[in-house]
Amino acid sequence: MTMKVLVVEDNEANMKLAVIVLESGGYQVVQAVDGAQGIEQARQELPDLILMDIQLPGTDGLTATRILKADAATRHIPIIALTAYAMKGDDERMFAAGCDGYITKPIHYPELLAQVARHLERDVER
């Protein structure tokens, strides 16, 4: 069974790279370019995992994460934050919003695939 990953990312180059890397890892990829579309896609597609950019136009990634984690239909989906923020305390803000993990940008693709696999294994074990 192919695992489905929703990527919520407004930067076209980052999106293309994430899609290429995830598809090469055998994942089916669903795309959204902002928080509102990400919420809608998550509710429609019910992906196995969400990669959520934090700096998004309109509804930012932390707000979108809070909304998805408050929804009974989507709260079980692991969400990994993609962020340029790597300051002390930022990880606490991401975890407080409901993120299950985070990856700092620029993204190192072996780390991306390793984190996705780790979170999906944990989800399958539940």
Rank of each mutant, 00 (worst) to 15 (best):
A72R: 03
I54M: 10
K105D: 04
L112S: 08
L62F: 14
A70G: 02
V8K: 07
K16L: 11
Q44I: 05
V19M: 05
L17A: 12
I39S: 00
G38S: 05
T59N: 12
G26F: 01
Q115E: 06
I79G: 12
M87K: 05
A42F: 03
G89D: 07
V21Q: 02
F95K: 09
A86S: 14
Y109M: 09
Q31S: 13
M52F: 13
F95H: 08
Q37S: 12
I20V: 11
N14P: 02
G25F: 08
P78I: 09
L62D: 14
G38E: 04
A86E: 03
T74G: 02
E12Q: 14
P106R: 15
A13L: 12
D91H: 04
S24D: 12
I80C: 06
I107G: 07
R122I: 13
H76M: 11
P106K: 15
R126I: 11
I77G: 14
T59V: 15
A96C: 05
A64Y: 01
L120R: 05
I54C: 03
L68K: 01
S24W: 02
A32R: 01
K105M: 06
T74I: 08
T2C: 09
Q55C: 01
P47V: 07
L49R: 09
V29Y: 05
S24I: 00
K105S: 07
A96E: 08
Q55E: 04
P78M: 07
G89I: 09
R43Y: 07
G61C: 10
E40A: 08
L46M: 05
V29K: 06
R75T: 02
V7Q: 03
L68P: 14
M1T: 12
T63A: 15
L62A: 14
A13H: 13
D34Q: 06
V8D: 08
E125N: 13
I103S: 13
Y102N: 03
N11I: 15
A86P: 13
V21W: 05
T59E: 13
L68Q: 06
V124H: 10
P47L: 05
V7N: 05
V5K: 08
K4T: 10
G101F: 05
E12I: 14
L49G: 06
L112W: 14
G101L: 02
G58T: 05
E12L: 13
P106M: 14
M3S: 15
E9Q: 12
D60R: 06
I103D: 08
A97H: 01
C99E: 14
T104Q: 00
V29F: 06
M1P: 12
V30K: 03
E45S: 12
A86I: 13
A18W: 01
E111K: 02
M52A: 12
A96Q: 10
L22W: 02
T74L: 07
V19D: 00
G25Y: 10
P78F: 00
I50T: 10
L113Q: 09
A73S: 12
V33S: 15
P57H: 04
E92G: 07
A13Y: 13
A64T: 08
L113W: 04
R122K: 15
K16F: 15
I80A: 11
